[in-house]
Amino acid sequence: MPVHEGLVHEGLVDDGRLVGGHCRSCQRPHFPELSTCPYCSSDEVERRLLSDTGVLWGWTAVTAAPPGYRGEVPFGFGVVELPEGLRIITRLTEADPAALRFGQPMRLAIVPLHVDDGGAGVTTYAFEPADER
C-alpha cells in the first residue's frame, strides 16, 4: 500500500504515475495535487499526471535513519527536474552519490519502503537512473 494516498495514480491506464496539478490561471504545475494553486492562489486548478521521466538536478544519500523513518539506510534522496517545468523532491534508488551525475536521465519507480506492524508492505515513489539498463 502507498505511504500516502493521492501521490501516485492507481488505474488500468497510467498506473503508478505521480499526480500533480496544473493551474489554468497562471499555467504553472505543482505537486502534490492541491485544490488551490500554491503560486497564485487561484482555485482554477486541475489534476495532471506528471511525466515519469526527467533529469537529475540534485542528490545526496541519507546515511542514518531520521526520526519517523523505518526503512533501510542508506537511501538516495534528491531532486528530479520534469519536462513540464517542475522540480520534484524524491527518493532515489541509487544510494551512492558518486554513481550519479547532474542532468542524468531518471525514471519514476514504485519501490518498497518497509513492512508495517500489520505485515503489509508500504511503498513509495522514487526515481531511478534511466540510462543503466
Binding site: W59, T60, P66, P67, G68, F77, V79, I89
Partner: peptide
C-alpha cells in the same frame, strides 16, 4: 540529534522525505 519537526506530515517522515540534513545537503551541492 536530528530535529524532529511537527512541520512535516508523518507520512513524509515515513517516506524518508523529512530528513533535515538531506535538504541542507542538496542546497550545499
Amino acid at each position: 540529534g536530528i530535529i524532529r519537526s511537527s512541520f512535516f506530515e508523518p507520512w513524509r517522515e515515513e517516506a524518508g522525505l523529512a530528513a533535515t540534513p538531506s535538504y541542507f545537503a542538496l542546497r550545499a551541492q
